[in-house]
């Protein structure tokens, strides 16, 4: 098998670029905690409303700098009383579904979480700017999928 000299140059360059991309995302993810939404906690999808923290959905202050937001997604909306959180504080979003798969996606942020029944998805995010952010479902969930949205106010 023979590689042309230029092909060797190209493949070396290409693979080096790929290693660079992987290093950037890898280091940023694992050393600075910029991992995508996820989590390994399970929940009984039929007992969501009796299971903490979803028995009292909404915003809870955990300590001076941390807030937790627990929300249940269901066709076609989110059970969340008024969502108001402060800017500059860490917000931990916890989501689950009582029916099909949904998403919880806050426009113009890194919060883009799949919500899977039987699982709790977690994502931590700090808002920089106050304002009203659109939240929507971007995973097809049925006839009313495009009507599934809400809002969060950052103060």
């Amino acid at each position: 098998m023979h590689f042309h000299k230029y092909e060797k140059i190209w493949l070396t360059f290409g693979m080096a670029s790929l290693v660079l991309f992987l290093s950037i995302v890898g280091v940023s993810a694992f050393s600075q905690d910029h991992t995508p939404a996820g989590g390994m906690t399970t929940i009984d999808p039929k007992k969501v409303n009796e299971t903490a923290p979803f028995d009292k959905p909404g915003v809870t202050q955990l300590d001076d700098d941390t807030y937790q937001v627990a929300i249940v997604a269901l066709a076609f909306g989110y059970t969340a009383p008024e969502l108001k959180v402060p800017a500059g504080k860490e917000i931990i979003f916890k989501l689950t579904s009582t029916d099909v798969v949904h998403s919880f996606t806050i426009d113009n942020t890194k919060v883009n979480m799949m919500v899977v029944p039987g699982r709790i998805t977690t994502k931590s995010y700090t808002f920089d700017k106050p304002g009203k952010y659109l939240i929507l479902c971007n995973e097809y969930c049925g006839a009313g999928h495009h009507m599934m949205f809400t809002e969060i106010e950052v103060y």
Partner: peptide, 20 residues
């Protein structure tokens, strides 16, 4: 499935490397 629960970050990232 990078933004969903039930798969730990280790396995997600391993498959990201294989994707590359």
């Amino acid at each position: 499935q990078l933004t969903e629960p039930g798969i730990s970050n280790f396995w997600k990232f391993l498959q990201v490397c294989l994707t590359f």
